[in-house]
Structures are given as C-alpha cells and as structure tokens.
Design a protein around this nucleic acid. Structure first.
Length: 816
RNA sequence: GGGCGCAUAGCUCAGUUGGCUAGAGCGCAUGCUUCACACGCAUGAGGUCACAGGUUCAAGUCCUGUUGCGCCCACCA
C-alpha cells in the first residue's frame, strides 16, 4: 500500500474493507477486560444527514478508538431513532400523504419503508467516515426489542406510580394534531397587533382590556385585576359583558396580574396561555373551548366558527371595529411558543394524556445531574437550569400513528386500565391480543385499546436499557454492557430532552444515573458565525461531499480540531490541514520503510545516542499529554500536541539528524545506523498509534506495512496505546537535544540570511556557545553536522553569552 | 428578567492547578527543486490578551464591576 502518492480514496476503502473483514471493532463478549460503554445517540432518521452529525459523532468516535487502544473492551453500539413524529413527517413529505387521512396500518407500513431507506444512507455515511461502532449491536427504536423494552419501561413506571393519566389543558399542536411536551417548544418572534378593547360593565361604565388574541373572546371566562390596582376596589365582584358575545364574566383579583402591563386589567380565556391554565385551575373557572383540535374555531365563536384562529382574529377585529369596541391598535413584537417540528403556535387544549411524573422529583433529578461528570463542566449547569425551570410533567402520549403503542386497554364500562402482561410484549397491534379479564372495578368484560402512541423520546430515553437488554430473555448472553454505562456523547441542544429524559427513566427503573460521564459537543456554525438551521438551508457543506472531496481522515481532522462543547465555525482550512498531515505521515512512512524493510527491532543491541533517547522522551511526554487530554475528552488539544511532536520533533529535526546514519551502510557505521533505525522505528511506531484515533485510515496503512508483523494486534485500532514512561537518561538527553537544536537553528538562520540552499554543504562552521550547553555539544555534534550539512563544526564556549545562546562566527563554503 | 458561555496576532483558534521574552495553523514577507514530502523546507514580521478596579512577589489565567456577542429558559395583557 505504501507506494506512490497519498491517495485517500484507495486508503479509505482499503482500511474500511479490512476492518469489515476482520470484525475489528466487534465487542468481545467473552473478554474479561473492563468494559467501556458508549450510549451513542441514535440519530433521528429525518431524511437529512447534516454536518453537525459528522462533527459530534466523530468526536465521540475518537474517544471510542482511544479507549480501545487503552485496553478497554469498548461497547460501542449504533442505533437509529426512527419511530414517532419525525419519521411520520418525513413520510408524509416524501409520499405526499397525510397520516390521519389514510388507513393507519398502511401509513405505518409506509413509515417503515421510508425509514428503512434512509437508515441505509445513514449507515453508509457512518461507515465511510470510519465510525468504529460494532454494527452487530445496531438497534432501531421501532424494532421489536426496542418496543418491548420501551413498553416494559412504561409498565415499570406505571407499576411504580410514576405514570398517570390525566385530562387537563395540554400543550397542543394543531397541525399534527397531537399533544406535545414542554421540551418540544420553541419561541418565535412574531409581529402582531395589540388591541385595546372596551368591555362594558353590566351595571354601567366600562373598562379597557388589551389583547393580542381577540379571537379568544368567546372563550373569555373571567377578568383579572391586581388586588392593589387603584381601581380594584370599585371593580372587584362586578361583571363585565364580553364584547360581541352574549355572556358576561366576573372581575376577580389575582396577584399574578402585572399592573404595568397592558391596561393592568386582563381577560382570562380557556386557553390563551399558561397563566390562563393556572387561573382556570386555581379559580375553578368555566371551560369555554373556542379552538378545536385542528386549530379551527368552535361553534361558540358564532360568525367566526370554522375559521382558523388567525382568520378568525381578522374577522372579529373587523366586527369589533364596527361595533366600536376596538379603541386602539398598536403594532408590537411579540414572542410566542411554537411547536419545534411544525413552527405552529401552540394551543392549550383539554385532552386526556399520559404523563410521567417529573415535577415531584426535581430535587432528586438535580442531585442525579450532580452525580454525573459533565464535560465540559458547565453543561451540567444547563441541565440543572432546565430541571429547575420545569412547569409540566412529561406528557408522553401522542395522538399519532407510527410509534410505540401503549400496552394498555380501557374498560368500556368505567375506563379502568388493563395492562398487558409481560409475555404479551411487544404489543405491536392491540388486535393481536384478546383481553379476557373481568373489570375489577365494574365487572365489565369489554375492553377498548389505547390508540395513542408514545412520544419518540419515551423510547429513546431508554437507550441504556436497550443496550443493556433490560429484562430480555437473552440478557444473560448479552449482559456485557453493565449499567450505568460509561459515557453518553451528545450535543448541547438535547440536554433538555434526551439527557434529561434518560436520567428520569434511569431513576424510575433503577434509582441510579444512566451513565457516569457525559460528553457534550457544540454545534457547527455557518460562515459568519450563524447558527445552521434547516429552514435557512445554510449548511456550509454536505457530509457526503466532505468525505468525497477531502477523504475520511481529513474530515475527521476537521471535526476533531474543535474544543469539546464550543460551537465551531466551519472552516475549509481545517480539511486542508488534515490532508497535509496525512500526506506528511505518508511520506515519512515511505522514508522509514526504505530503511526499515529488513529491520528486526528485537535484535537491536546498539546503544542509543542522546538524540535517540531524547526523541523517545519527547514521544513519552506527548503520550502523557495526549492521554490526559483524551481522558477528559479534549481531543483537539491532544491532536495539537501529537501533531506538533510528529511534525516539529520527528520530521523537521529528528529525521534530519539521523539521515546520515540511516544512509551510512559502511561496516564502521553499522552500530550508529542500527541505533538510528531503532529510534526511527520506535518513534514512528509510537506516533502512528497516537494519531490512529484521529486519522485511522492512513495510520492503518502505515501500521500494516511497517509494524503489524511484529505486533500482536491485527489492526491499529486494537494495538496498544504507547507507554508514557520516558526511557532511562531522558532528562540529560533532552538537554542535549535542546543544545543541538540551538546550534542547528543558528546555522539555519544564517543560511536563510545568506539566501543559501539548505542542501548546500558547508565545509566549516564556527560557533561560540554559552557555557551551559557547551559541554553537551560533543554528544550531539555529529547529529548537528548531519542535519546542518556541515563537514566541520568548531565549537567554542563563551561565558559572555546568555544561557542557551549561540553565536555564529564563521561559515565557509567548500573551495571550488 | 433568570441561567450559561464567549471576547487573545489580519482570519480561525490553543493557552490545565496564576510562574521566565503570550502559542499554533492559515494568511503575509524573504529565500530554497535539500537524496520522504513544493500537499514541502528554512527564516522573519505581526498581540496595550474587550474595558475598569482589586488580590498577589507574580494575573491572559483568580475576584468585583462595565461593555459587546452568542445559546438556553421565562415573558406572550
């Protein structure tokens, strides 16, 4: 392989084929090595692979490779999150259908087909970038095992009284016509009008109320005023006529009213916002539902009935204007909550939903967050901040089709809940099972299946359980991924969803954390430091193009140039730099092969020179630094240190200093040559391992060509991470090295000033050097002469010079 | 309004627990086909570390405040 020019296409294919053939990255279930398990994010099969995926997955993957080389038995599964609304939306878009307008089983089938197609593309991408997952552990959140474990999780929570069914005003999306969770909300700036409306009092007089949502007037059930409001005394208890409606409402006091906002008097509708929901519950108000599930006005809206809310708003404003109730209008910027998937404004609809209790365990959840080590540290604070701000229990039911069914039936007589026995799981279709029970509450025998499906997060929050094969019949043979898992990699945007929900579930099931460490990535930013968003379509590159154009290793190099947790500006330069590193390694390896072809490392008897020891010491330093960095997921820093060692120390200095010895095949030079070859062998062997987690393809080729034959490992990914122990005599040798470099640099500078080719030999160079390095020179003089192409090097100590200083006195070109 | 982060060379970024003249890559300048590599090599220019205080023998690093930018949450009368 190590022939000709560096060709990433050939290298990538060759290495990936090798790993595939070998099963290099399979988890070893029989090994007694300690397990390092990674709770890989199952990406949503949403149809588009984006640059952010490559970014964060590569970062975690680098750690998997590192841990494997450190001797850990790495459990590195891969998964796909293909159930739920995202897949439904993708299917609807791709096939131009609407799930609720076609037979459910047909739609579900179409969803399965659609996700299968995209899954293949996903897997191909991950393989093409060298993800070292064990693909035999692949799971998908809609496969039977995942459904079974998800349903088991639900039943476990239900049995522990952590789940409840409740009818109450719930966050509702009118486009997909389902309940949604707090974590799925986004805020959106909206230009709208603030309308001052006149409400006439029943007993005469009037008040002014400001609103952005006049279409909710039919749902107005009360008017609130702050108890300290100057008008409170005269208004409290009075009734006001709701404009254009035939009902009136009472004026009530509540200190949640802000006297500074609007007119200081506010109407309460069921339901315009979260406060309305609170007031409705607190003051036991009537329920007047003005908006239906599909976002259209209900019959009580009179002339506006059947219109969508925004149409109704325009219509009723016109009527309010005509009737003289509209006193003033003002353009304002408003913030509204929208559903992240559709961008539609959230409504509050009283519906019956399943909830998982989270509000009652906020403190415990904070505590669990503190038990997990977050990298970087401040991501733990973001988790905490989210938990502390929770307002709703976790609504897990969705009025949708393609998802994990609730394994429950309701009694037709009294709505009592029947839960599927364990042996029924997974309940894929309720019709596959017949409930023969008699209802313990009412004696009824007719049972109605729950038609809702679970929120997709209700399943993906069980990924540690899926990996562990919790409660599965074959768990014993697979019980190799212990809980808690070692590490959770993910990006910061899903701390409030995936990380949070997973912690909730783990607590409910096991009263423990799901993983010991969390590695949280930042985002890729588009040029101009702007957020990449699907709607803007401003992704700077397509992942497949990146790999095709730059190769897998250069693409990885780009992703690994970031600092964990920081957002990272997309930068083409990184790819070029990655490519350069690969080319450099390729060429250094070719040089090495020329000198190591017939080399037997184990037969070396020659003593190393000080620079041979020094370069080994510098390698050991680099191993230590890189190890410390990778242990805390600072891949970028590790990469920098390794690269610097490879490029500056090894290529620019060491190789130049040993070339003379390498090319000297005279009998006199045999020992010197052998020591140089041993040095070259050791250090290249070491650095290629250090680089392997970053650029696994090119390093695999080098490893196979030069080092595999003498190594136990079949692939570099299984080879041992180098030792950090410095060789004997390191300290002295390093000082000798520094002295050599000081002289070399002086000569190089002179050459550059004289505009002389570095290749042009010099017959004699005379330098004065500081006393502290003077006595070191004899030990490295030959090496310096070799690298500087000097036949003679005269060195004179000069106590007038500063520590480490070197002055060039004379340099002579050979006489022609 | 609450939480968090960022501010270092023209650009993109490193700078662990405070410790010598603040680093890298790109870009720029000068030179070099040198027997692995011009996808290279050598040399060089370039920074009041956002601002103002404070702690310390010593601050880019710690503390307080200010300004600007970004993210999350709340606000949705």
């Amino acid at each position: 392989m190590l022939d000709g020019k560096y060709d990433f296409k050939a290298i990538d294919t060759w290495a990936q084929d090798l790993w595939e053939r070998q099963g290099t990255h399979r988890f070893d279930g029989d090994s007694d090595k300690p397990v390092y398990s990674i709770d890989t994010p199952p990406p949503t099969v949403s149809g588009s692979l984006h640059i952010g995926h490559v970014f964060s997955y590569t970062q975690a993957e680098c750690i998997a490779r590192y841990q494997r080389m450190r001797g850990m038995n790495v459990f590195y599964p891969f998964g796909f999150d293909d159930n739920g609304l995202p897949t439904e939306r993708l299917t609807e878009k791709d096939h131009g259908v609407l799930g609720r307008e076609m037979p459910r089983d047909e739609f579900v089938k179409l969803c399965r087909e659609t996700s299968a197609k995209y899954k293949q593309e996903f897997e191909a991408l991950w393989r093409s970038i060298g993800i070292s997952a064990d693909w035999t552990l692949l799971y998908s959140t809609i496969d039977e095992r995942a459904i079974r474990i998800s349903q088991r999780g639900f039943l476990d929570a239900l049995a522990k009284d952590e789940v409840y069914l409740h009818t109450s005003p719930t966050l509702w999306d009118t486009e997909t016509q389902t309940a949604v969770a707090q974590a799925e909300l986004e805020s959106k700036d909206k230009r709208t009008k603030m309308n001052d409306l006149r409400f006439d009092l029943v007993d005469g007089g009037d008040i002014t109320i400001a609103t952005t949502r006049p279409e909710l007037l039919p749902a107005c059930v009360a008017i609130f005023i702050h108890p300290d409001h100057p008008q409170a005394g005269e208004l409290l208890g009075k009734r006001a006529k709701v404009p254009l409606q035939d009902h009136d409402v009472e004026i009530l006091a509540d200190d949640k009213v802000d006297p500074e906002k609007g007119t200081g008097i506010v109407m309460c509708c069921t339901f315009g916002d979260k406060t309305d929901v609170e007031w409705y519950q607190k003051h036991k108000l009537d329920l007047r539902q003005a908006i239906g599930r599909e976002g259209k006005m209900a019959d009580i809206a009179g002339p506006e009935a059947g219109l969508y809310a925004n149409q109704a708003r325009r219509a009723i404003l016109e009527r309010l204007h005509e009737s003289g109730h509209l006193l003033k209008q003002e353009d304002i910027e408003n913030v509204v909550n929208v559903f992240e998937k559709t961008g539609r404004e959230i409504e509050f609809l009283p519906t019956r939903q399943w909830f998982i209790k989270v509000l009652d365990k906020k403190e415990k959840l904070v505590e669990l967050g503190e038990k997990i080590r977050w990298y970087p540290d401040h991501m733990g604070k973001r988790y905490r901040n989210w938990v502390e701000g929770l307002d709703w229990d976790w609504c897990i039911s969705r009025q949708r089709f393609f998802g994990v069914p609730f394994p429950v039936w309701f009694c037709e007589g009294c709505d009592h809940v029947f839960t599927a026995p364990e042996e029924w799981l997974p309940v894929l279709e309720h019709s596959n099972h017949e409930v023969k029970e008699t209802c313990s509450e009412c004696g009824g025998t007719e049972w109605r299946p729950e038609t809702d499906v679970m929120d997709t997060w209700a399943t993906s929050s069980e990924t540690p359980e899926i990996n562990h094969r919790w409660g599965e019949a074959d768990a014993e043979e697979h019980r190799r991924c212990p809980l808690p898992m070692s590490m959770r990699p993910q990006a910061h945007d899903i701390i409030r969803t995936w990380a949070f929900y997973t912690i909730v579930k783990s607590w409910i099931h096991f009263q423990d954390v799901p993983w010991r460490e969390a590695m949280v990535s930042g985002h890729v930013q588009a040029p101009g430091k702007v957020k990449i968003s699907k709607s803007k379509g401003n992704a700077p590159a397509d992942p497949r193009d990146m790999i095709t154009e730059h190769g897998a290793d250069a693409t990885r190099y780009w992703a690994l140039s970031a600092t964990l947790g920081n957002d990272y500006l997309y930068n083409e330069e990184d790819f070029k730099q990655g490519r350069r590193l690969c080319v450099k390694l390729w060429n250094a390896a070719r040089l090495a092969r020329g000198h190591l072809a017939d080399f037997d490392r184990s037969a070396v008897t020659a003593d190393p020179r000080p620079i041979d020891t020094a370069i080994r010491a510098r390698l050991a330093d680099t191993v230590r630094i890189a190890g410390t960095d990778l242990d805390r997921f600072e891949f970028g820093h590790a990469k920098q240190a390794i690269e610097r060692f490879f490029w500056n120390d090894l290529c620019d200095n060491y190789l130049e200093m040993i070339k003379n010895r390498l090319y000297d095949d005279s009998p006199d030079g045999a020992d010197a040559r052998e020591a140089a070859r041993a040095g070259l062998y050791d250090v290249l062997n070491g650095v290629v391992r250090l680089l392997a987690p970053f650029v696994p393809h090119v390093t695999e080729v080098v490893f196979q060509d030069l080092f595999a034959a003498a190594d136990d490992a079949d692939a570099i990914g299984l080879a041992a991470w180098p030792a950090a122990e410095p060789p004997p005599g390191s300290e002295e040798a390093q000082h000798d090295w520094d002295a050599a470099i000081a002289v070399l640099t002086t000569v190089r500078r002179w050459r550059s000033e004289e505009k002389l080719s570095p290749g042009k030999p010099l017959s004699r160079v005379a330098v004065r050097i500081a006393p502290d390095i003077a006595d070191r020179l004899p030990r490295v003089q030959d090496d310096v002469r070799a690298a500087g192409r000097m036949e003679l090097l005269d060195v004179a100590p000069d106590s007038a010079l500063e520590k480490g200083d070197v002055q060039l006195d004379a340099a002579e070109l050979p006489s022609a």
